[in-house]
């Protein structure tokens, strides 16, 4: 079903260890009518992905316990099915993002709400 509507998917996955940011992001996106799934680290997200609708975008924090953003992205790229999902990095450290390859977007913390909506609209319509 992911192949059926690749560009009109309304599900967005947030991978973020900070509960406050996670909740705020979730609220912001839900207010725009997206379905939001949340995971508090990379491992949780990987476990969750096969069980949910293929998201149109993954908002990914980089520094997280258990499995960080780099490790998660690496695992994601190795999965034939999941590899095409666009990833937007949400990080406080733009320098840290420099060595992250294959991100479709970069959203710096503190998050600018308008920028967030622009990025989301670009990938999820």
């Amino acid at each position: 079903m992911a192949e059926a509507t690749p560009h009109r998917c309304r599900t967005i996955l947030i991978v973020e260890d900070d509960a406050a940011i996670r909740t705020a992001l979730q609220l912001a996106l839900e207010m725009e009518g997206y379905a939001v799934k949340i995971a508090s680290n990379g491992k949780e997200a990987l476990e969750m992905l096969p069980r949910i609708d293929t998201p149109c975008l993954i908002l990914l924090d980089l520094m997280m316990p258990i499995m960080n953003g780099w490790e998660f992205a690496k695992a994601l790229r190795q999965d034939m099915v999941l590899a095409p999902i666009p990833v937007a990095i949400v990080t406080a450290f733009s320098e840290e993002a420099a060595d992250f390859e294959g991100a479709q977007a970069l959203i710096k913390k503190p998050v600018d709400l308008e920028l967030l909506y622009q990025v989301v609209r670009k990938f999820c319509g």
């Binding site: 900070d18 940011i21 705020a24 503190p110 998050v111």
Partner: peptide, 9 residues
């Protein structure tokens, strides 16, 4: 920046 980000959001 993390709490500031959350606050701002």
């Amino acid at each position: 920046r993390t709490p500031v980000s959350a606050l701002k959001l």
